[in-house]
Write a protein that binds this DNA or RNA. Structure first.
Length: 465
RNA sequence: GUCCCCAUCGUCUAGCCUGGCCCAGGACAUCGGCCUUUCACGCCGAAAACAGGGGUUCAAAUCCCCUUGGGGACGCCA
């Protein structure tokens, strides 16, 4: 039997980090086995599902490189199928109509809660409000005793008491299936063989097992991975900050880093930390997936991102930078200059945004000096040194790094100064600040004319003090 | 409250299934040092964990039980 996995997000928001990891696991599992990866949109909540969410989720999946083989299927377009199966259950007496309104249920639930108790649906209420044209939901008739055993690939056998499970709704009054029902029907009809999903669904599994049983369908192999937690140990949510794939993309993270980070949350392969997508496909198995919850650690993601920033070809990074630069009003293209800048800045950046935010001085013709730098390095006694440097550089025919170094060394020797004493003032003159790539690299990127221009401006600035 | 799951450095984890090689390995972060032209990168080093208690065994991080802690679920949400 060929392996078929699926990812089934509900379009009620963006693609969450946890959902993304589930998607990655399912995708890798399918690829590893040479099977298929199916995408299904669980949009049975008419009030909360939106097209924008669907678009954003698909976009995020593509960005991550999680290509699906089939779909996206939408549950809202499969209503007939669910209805048909529900009718079948009705006919065989394994399900029944329930006329109790959601409102009444809600009231009873509230009531019970106020009394400090727990609400339990009672089968005998089913006929309340019954009438010829009265709307009804369909509930599954569940066993009153015994245990329901579920086999989980990660956790082994998990058993539940039948008394814990009441007759639950499978088809809502609006004709839409409930989550548990739709999942079963879809997984069965789409011939899904392996389901990898969040821990929070483990509790749903016995219900689904009951549906599989009532319909004489075979349940796929289940694997419940633990949740991703925030730093406070609570389930990761919006109040922890960025939680969606889109957020990280906007912050300048690379998809390789996000995938690499997420997959290592719960899965491991010995001591290895860095994995390419191909490598993941080759190495991913459920054997190496852990079962305890994992805390999301932004610093490690940052580290991975800076790793990929450094190891990807600068030309590629430059290309990714263009939209960010345009947004800043710096109109650039992937030219030699940008690539050189990227090659340098990539060494000291954690995100694409970091790079975009620290290259202004390469593209302005009016640099402003930081006060601290101005006061510290632009002292009168540095004036002759800067003049020497300027003069030396002016006479250079070939403005190569090698030749620049010679000029600096000559001045260093003549004035008996260490490179540090000269490089910092020059850096301030060229960049306005004290932090930048190597000074010769900066000059190389700027070019002779610009370097001379900035040096001269610094000289007159100091003279005017 | 009931039910389910989980438990190794601050964090992600290796080791656990198939006890001894583990006074517990790697990575991020932290702290030192080296390199150095600033910031980084890189390199070297340090500190840092088997939740607690009972068993089983010659021997337990590894197997069993209890406690504790954490998470999740109790919807005509998914």
């Amino acid at each position: 039997m060929t392996v078929r996995t699926r990812f089934a997000p509900s379009p009620t928001g963006s693609l969450h980090i946890g959902g993304a990891r589930t998607a990655i696991f399912n995708c890798l599992f399918a690829r590893h086995a040479g099977g298929s990866f199916v995408l299904r949109i669980e949009d049975t909540d008419q009030t909360r599902s939106t097209q924008e969410s669907i678009d954003e989720i698909l976009d995020a999946m593509e960005w991550l490189g999680l290509n699906w083989d089939e779909g996206p299927f939408r549950q809202s377009e499969r209503l007939d199928i669910y209805r048909e199966h529900a009718e079948k259950l009705l006919e065989s007496g394994k399900a029944y109509r329930c006329f109790v309104t959601p409102e009444e249920l809600q009231d009873r639930r509230k009531e019970a809660q106020e009394r400090g108790g727990v609400f339990r649906y009672d089968r005998k209420w089913a006929e309340e409000n019954a009438g010829p044209d009265k709307p009804y939901a369909i509930r599954l008739l569940t066993p009153d005793e015994g245990t329901i055993e579920v086999d989980d690939a990660l956790r082994g056998k998990v058993s539940f008491e039948a008394t814990e499970i009441e007759d639950f709704v499978i088809l809502k009054m609006d004709g839409f299936p409930t989550y548990n029902f739709a999942v079963v029907i879809d997984d069965a009809t789409m011939e899904i063989t392996n389901v990898i999903r969040g821990d929070d669904h483990l509790i749903n599994t016995p219900r689904q097992a009951l549906i599989y049983g009532a319909l004489s369908l075979e349940m796929p192999q289940m694997a419940h991975v633990s949740m991703i937690l925030g730093p406070d140990g609570k389930r990761l949510s919006k109040r922890h900050g960025a939680t969606s794939v889109t957020d990280y993309r906007a912050e300048g993270y690379l998809p390789e880093a996000v995938v690499n980070y997420l997959v290592r949350l719960g899965w491991s392969f010995g001591d290895q930390e860095i994995f390419s997508l191909d490598e993941l496909v080759e190495k991913f198995t459920l054997d190496n997936v852990g079962k305890s919850a994992a805390v999301f650690n932004p610093e490690k993601l940052e580290w991975l991102n800076s790793h990929y920033l450094r190891s990807k070809p600068p030309e590629k990074i430059a290309g990714l930078l263009i939209p960010l630069l345009n947004e800043k009003g710096i109109h650039s293209e992937v030219d030699e200059k940008l690539v050189k800048i990227v090659r340098e800045l990539t060494q000291r950046a954690k995100t694409l945004n970091d790079i975009a935010d620290s290259l202004d001085y390469f593209y302005t013709d009016q640099i402003t000096y930081e006060d601290k730098a101005d006061n510290k390095f632009f002292k009168p006694e540095i004036l002759p040194v800067l003049e020497d440097i300027t003069q030396g550089l002016t006479s250079l025919e070939d403005f190569t790094i090698e030749n620049m170094k010679e000029v600096f060394e000559r001045v260093m020797a003549e004035r008996e100064l260490k490179l540090g004493k000269i490089a910092q003032p020059v850096r301030v003159a060229l960049t306005g600040g004290t932090v930048s790539p190597g000074i010769f690299e900066v000059m190389d990127i700027l070019g002779k004319d610009e370097v001379l221009d900035r040096l001269n401006k610094a000289v007159s600035h100091i003279s005017a003090k």
